[in-house]
Design a protein around this nucleic acid. Sequence first.
DNA 1: GATGAATGAGCCTTCATTCAT
DNA 2: GATGAATGAAGGCTCATTCAT
Lengths: 218, 218, 218, 218
Amino acid sequence: MAAKQATSRLKRRDQTRRDLITATIDSIAKDGFAETTLEKVSKRAGVSRGLVNFHFISKEKLLIETLEQLSEEYAASWRKALDDADDDPVSQLVALIESDFHPRVCSRKKIAVWYAFLGEARSRPTYTKVCQSWDKRFSTVMESTCKNVAALGDYDHVDHVVAARALGALIDSLWRELMLSPKTFDREKSKIVCFRHLANVFPQHFNAAGPIPQNAKE
Amino acid sequence: MAAKQATSRLKRRDQTRRDLITATIDSIAKDGFAETTLEKVSKRAGVSRGLVNFHFISKEKLLIETLEQLSEEYAASWRKALDDADDDPVSQLVALIESDFHPRVCSRKKIAVWYAFLGEARSRPTYTKVCQSWDKRFSTVMESTCKNVAALGDYDHVDHVVAARALGALIDSLWRELMLSPKTFDREKSKIVCFRHLANVFPQHFNAAGPIPQNAKE
Amino acid sequence: MAAKQATSRLKRRDQTRRDLITATIDSIAKDGFAETTLEKVSKRAGVSRGLVNFHFISKEKLLIETLEQLSEEYAASWRKALDDADDDPVSQLVALIESDFHPRVCSRKKIAVWYAFLGEARSRPTYTKVCQSWDKRFSTVMESTCKNVAALGDYDHVDHVVAARALGALIDSLWRELMLSPKTFDREKSKIVCFRHLANVFPQHFNAAGPIPQNAKE
Amino acid sequence: MAAKQATSRLKRRDQTRRDLITATIDSIAKDGFAETTLEKVSKRAGVSRGLVNFHFISKEKLLIETLEQLSEEYAASWRKALDDADDDPVSQLVALIESDFHPRVCSRKKIAVWYAFLGEARSRPTYTKVCQSWDKRFSTVMESTCKNVAALGDYDHVDHVVAARALGALIDSLWRELMLSPKTFDREKSKIVCFRHLANVFPQHFNAAGPIPQNAKE
DNA sequence: GATGAATGAGCCTTCATTCAT
DNA sequence: GATGAATGAAGGCTCATTCAT
């Protein structure tokens, strides 16, 4: 029973922590980094003022955990996408793109927060690290997938590393469009832009509509 | 004589304003947006605390003018690059790339500031507008130049709009690398990355070294 | 127990608020409106600087609450005086005068503060309202009491409304004397001035010493 | 010619000083004491920022001169009224009342300024002095005039000193009404209130309409 | 004599953090 | 474990005053 109570307490504790991180994301998205105060965050999470320091020691630590969670969510999303995808590089590339534009990670709110952290990254080493590894992990998988795609066709002249980097950059550029000009942003058109880029580079495997079915060949 | 006096005063006034904007850029680059205070800025500019409000009314207005100047500097840079370039689209594309990696606009400091503003853009409408137009103006010229390049060769299957966007995104991604990982960044290699992207898309006109001389054709 | 705790906290809270208002009155009385800063007020109240904003949101709101309390204290004073007085108009008029010169409300400090607010009344609508209602409430009761006195005697030719207003004005004038020339001010003499005014208007019921006993008549 | 130039300069100087005092009055009337800054004053007077200190040394000195001018204007007004009046006390009393409600001195603006200074009087000795003498000079003449009126009739039981003081207080109360409730204020009705007070005290010489013609008696 | 840029002290306010209850 | 009053440092801003031009 004591154990149960302890478990319940732990759950409660974690729930409060999660609530606070969610509230932090919401606040940064709405009011920006500069206007995000612990009072707003605690009010939004429905807890008392002093509780944030109790759970996270300092505001800075709360912010770092928030960034880390955001980063983890993102990585988890594309990892799962890869796991669920068929075992060929083209499908995997498609899965990565699908994942990156899934509302789960690609919402105006989350992207605004991501850019907010990026904006402070230069002057806060911890942010720098998280942002670097965020970029790094994704570009690595993107690169290797593009490499595998390149191996499928007649792409000797294609620089798959640069193609991968350009694809990553393109996705980022579309995210930024969602943040700055949400009205012109369109989730489906964004994917098409990515496919068109792939069609420019891997014309045998992609066109504007997405991957070109390769079964005819076999 | 009175006119001269007025001129001298005006010059002085403008010089002070410029100094303050420069100091603001330096401060944001070094300490970040959140840690940029008017005291630091005024100290850096070597003037008294109250002078900022005297000249710019409020901190926010100083920040906006700073962002605008940054935006203007950037646009002026690539406009001049275009003006100075030969009158063929390939040279112009090269000029745009050269301009974007020229230390004048592509310094770690300036890019950090640009990203700092971008980070607050979501929650401050004025920043949003300036950032939008910054993106917009550049992508427009990039697109039309790529279109002209596409017209030079056998590029029917190439989507030049997406190619242009990808190039812009690539440049931005390299800038971000300069900001987050200055040690791995290399100005020349960055241009080569861009050329490689162009080589992927316009293989008749670009290779990793840059533009392919076309005189053989004539 | 929780309730007790809450009560204790609430008491504490209210005590702090009261202390701050008292300190505000003291400060305005001593240094004047213009020189009353939150630092002085908080120091006088023995609390930290930021607590004022915590409890009153802004300096302006603290000032308004201070004025309101002053107004309430004053009204409470004469209301109690009326309650405690005998049930005849002459005794009531005497009670009102006694109340107005009671040190509880008629201290140099409080009058200085009252005049300080009056001085800013024109340019701050909230002050205007409080000052208006202060004046209004008192003049209403003064008027009706004078009316009742007038009905007691042979005062057909007497304008009791004007007599009441003149009495109120006289009291104010004596208050002002306390503020500007405290050395010539004398509490007892001030009441005599009021009685003399009443003697001028209601000679059958008042003389310089106060009310004339009317039992002979019965 | 040099003298003429000097004179012209002196005139100009005085004009500027007068403009600044006028602007000060306007500013205090509109924005209150607390919000009256030298910048507003100089802007209102149409001169440069630094000129106030040049002409008045300090803000405080400008304020004192403003108060003094207001006081002088007021005294000049009732002195002239007395000079122009017939040589009997009743006419003189009427003249004093007329003067006190003449727009020249009894405007909402000027009264607001007068009360603004009064509000700071307690904490600034110089203001105290000016306000004291303002009160004193007027109450002295009021008292002697009332004394002379009292001598005209059967007023043995009348305390003319208190009657005079009440009249002065009444005028002040009506002024305050103009400041706080300009909509209910009425210049003519105000005078009638004063006459009614006098009718209460000197029924043989005043009624609600004003002085009672005494020629029938002779 | 006049201007207005520049100074710097001081004010109100905000806010992360602490701690008694 | 949770609350919220209290702290105190720091920030943006105002403004009287100074002074070079």
